[in-house]
Amino acid sequence: MKNTPLTAAALRAALARIEQRQPAAPEGMAERFMERMAQEQAVKGRHVVPARSRRRTLRHFFAFTAAAAAVVAVAVVLWPSQERKIAIPTSPNTTLAEATRQPEAPAALHDSPAAPDTRTIAPTPRIAAKPKEQLAKARSAGSAAAETAADVVIQAAANVPEVVIAVAAATPPAAPTVPAVQTAEAAPPVQALPSQPRATTFTAAEVHLDRLAEASRHSHAYLMLSEELAVQRLGAMELLPRCTAVFNRQEQNNLKPISI
């Protein structure tokens, strides 16, 4: 058969006829396939689950683990500062002594503000165990809480024993050697003698003043207002220099309060 035209239409027609000759898919092929797939599953000991599902499950597991690890890491970094915040009472009438004293200690020290209490402020072990290095560590870790100046002031205010030590260092050497910083377990608050120089202790009035400033978010203006209130309440004008010393000590530590 010579000169047969080989057109696309002819090819299409021929191919169509070839395809029509092909037998159709046999009946029951789907059932046989499902049976075979079930056998494959039984042989492999697992369901035929696409690999993407398995990878997705693994991906979810690793993501969840990473997220949990990140949360734990952040909690570890933030916990010291948060713990410090929790330890600080929010009521302006609550003194630091109340926040840190032992359960058997007497009621609020500021009940008789006219008679300043010379009780030695014994820091709790928790506060004593919080050196400034931890504050620096928290700040370097990018803690949002420590980033704010208010939190920084809170941290500094919690370091009252350091201030007491600083004040004590400036006192004459004739002062009795009553330890200003001691743990609550080691010794309960010691009632100082009337003749004991006040430089070696931190009076309830001073603590109260400090707590006023602390509870009022430690801004400079609030601190000054708190000083005035405290002075009026306590009737002790000589406390002002001490309060100023406390505040200056904070400023020396580059812990600037927020100005409002």
Binding site: M29, R36, P50, R55
Partner: peptide
């Protein structure tokens, strides 16, 4: 038919 089943098994195992 056998090749068809092989094809679908390969496809379903590599569906991802």
């Amino acid at each position: 038919e056998e090749l068809t089943q092989d094809t679908f098994l390969r496809a379903f195992n590599a569906l991802d």
